[in-house]
Write a protein that binds this DNA or RNA. Structure first.
Lengths: 339, 339
DNA sequence: CTGAAAGCGCTAACAG
DNA sequence: CTGTTAGCGCTTTCAG
């Protein structure tokens, strides 16, 4: 592939002049400019961005690690980030951690050796303090945490108001006349999972309903967990009349369980879930959901990150925490019973 | 961030020695090795991959452009590619073309300036010959086309047997007693869409059924198209008794239309579709689908590409075309009528 | 406005 | 084994 040197030779100018022209930092006389243009097209010249990155110590690449791009919530997030990044001339290097910290650590190391200008991170759940993230930031790479915020770490973040989102949803269930409302939570190691549980508790408390620990099942945000937990809960004689599920995948599991047990929704069990599923409204009955602005989380995260990079100061002096709000979409799965 | 030079100084050895140690190409005496190790950890040294890339003219990065990562089919494909790439020490730069050739062209240019070692491409539909892809290959960047193969271009590819997949599915519909079977195709600019239509025709022909042009609707693989086409088709007095939809998104649109029109599946219309939806089996009734090995397409594609890169020869001498097979998952949406 | 030249951090001869 | 050194392709002073 042609180099700037070959172009300069062919155009009869110095490499400096070609570079000046390319970067547009200095103007070049019309005559030379045309010769450069001609040489470039004759040689089919494509600037070597690797060399430029080395020289400038700027790669114009962002790293992004999410749990699993196969989960619609994250794929929309990635798409949002990518759209913004591209607009602002950044490229995105994506990784799937499957929520394993070890993988996350490995990826972050790779991203450092690759000298990405910043990273968007959906942090994996873990008992221990995320030193690896702290180090990355300390080493001068701006980080924006998405969806989840590690506690005790000063870092920019874009999240969703989980407490409010689930509280509203559970209140809706109560409004529909339910008194025995179960919740399927995510792994309580995760802040988001804890917050959704908290919203559930707040709603019950606000309406003077007792919290029955039997109705609280901890899952892991996977279909299988929802399936298993639902089978257990629904087999009870004092089974709940409504269920709030902390994410979409687990709700799918619940639907499976219901269909296996021959239970009708909402007649036998009203169902509502966090996360919108692509098919929420074609399900029979359509599913009531707490819709998260996944795409927007990605956009805002990327914008925030790029602003940080542009500002140049990795100063942890000020931390920006964006909290977006969810939207409760009421559908048939929670329609009043007996109607 | 520390450089190899600083490490060498601190360890009291030459940069060459550090490099030899790092690359493992030459052995280093135990004493020096330990000093290097110590210096590296004291300085928290991370090799600069950008510099290495420049020196070796190898970035160990792959470009991947798909239509839209938000579509489960593609997100699984990307995941498969990423898993293989990572295993073999490559990183993936992903892009969404939204099936616009102009965007695709732009991305491929970016990928060239970034000097990726190869690209995985789901080519956008277009009337004209994809010169941009041809040029990319000619310039020495190996390309593997996924899911769709541009005609007349000698390029490696990993695809699916669309003809067979849809033929089997339509045959199943016929076996269930249907005679008026509609098809919703994708954009016929796309080979995959044409092939699925072809499978449909083959099935009808094989069973001596006439092809009624009225029952063939061309869509664009989006929910809205499925919705609109279905509304038109189902409003007819001589409406079909079964429908084969060429992709999952459009099937969702059909389901919406059916629910709006108060039609029951499979009583009023048997429905089958290409692509498995995450919720295919929790739908009521569960949806009969032609399952594509999306994840596997990504894996095979990445493996093929990396093998090409490793072999070093961009020789177009031999072209590898992998064709994977689909799996027909028969579910309730096509259950025999009147049962 | 233009050109010469010094590096960015690393690898790979090459000579010891 | 080890050290020296010449670049990879580009940007950017710094003189002209």
């Amino acid at each position: 592939m042609a180099t700037i040197k070959e172009v300069s030779k062919r155009a009869g100018v110095s490499v400096g002049t070609v570079s000046h022209f390319l970067t547009g930092r200095f103007s070049v006389s019309p005559g030379r400019r045309n010769r450069i243009l001609a040489a470039m097209s004759e040689l089919n010249y494509q600037p070597n961005h690797v060399a430029r990155s080395l020289k400038l110590s700027r790669t114009h690449m962002l790293g992004m690690v999410v749990s699993d791009i196969t989960n619609p919530f994250f794929s929309h997030m990635v798409r949002g980030a990518e759209d913004i990044a591209l607009n602002r001339n950044y490229l995105l290097l994506t990784f799937n951690s499957d929520d394993h910290v070890e993988r996350e650590i490995q990826f972050l190391t790779v991203l450092r050796t690759r000298r990405v200008d910043g990273v968007l991170l959906v942090i994996a759940p873990s008992q221990v303090f995320p030193h690896h993230v702290e180090e990355l930031i300390a080493s001068g790479t701006p980080v924006v945490c998405l969806d989840r915020v590690p506690q005790g770490l000063r870092v920019d973040s874009v999240t969703v108001d989980n407490i409010r989102g689930s509280r509203e949803c559970v209140e809706h269930l109560i409004d529909e006349g339910h008194r025995r409302i179960a919740i399927l939570t995510g792994p309580l190691l995760l802040q988001t999972a804890r917050e959704r549980l908290q919203g559930y508790k707040q709603a019950l408390k606000a309406r003077n309903l007792a919290i029955d620990p039997v109705l609280v099942g901890e899952g892991n945000f996977r279909v299988e967990a929802g399936h298993k937990l639902a089978r257990n809960l629904l087999a009870r004689v004092d089974r709940p009349t409504a269920m709030f599920v902390s994410n979409g995948l687990m709700a799918v599991g619940v639907l499976k369980a219901m269909s296996e047990l021959g239970l009708e929704c909402p007649r036998d069990l009203a169902l509502a879930s966090f996360d919108d599923l692509a098919l929420s409204d074609v399900l029979r009955p359509p599913l009531t959901t707490v819709v998260q602005p996944a795409y927007e989380i990605g956009r805002r995260g990327a914008a925030l990150l790029i602003d940080r990079i542009a500002s140049g100061s990795t100063k942890t002096s000020s931390v920006t925490k964006v909290k977006l709000t969810t939207e409760l979409k009421i559908r048939g799965s929670t329609a009043t019973r007996g109607s």
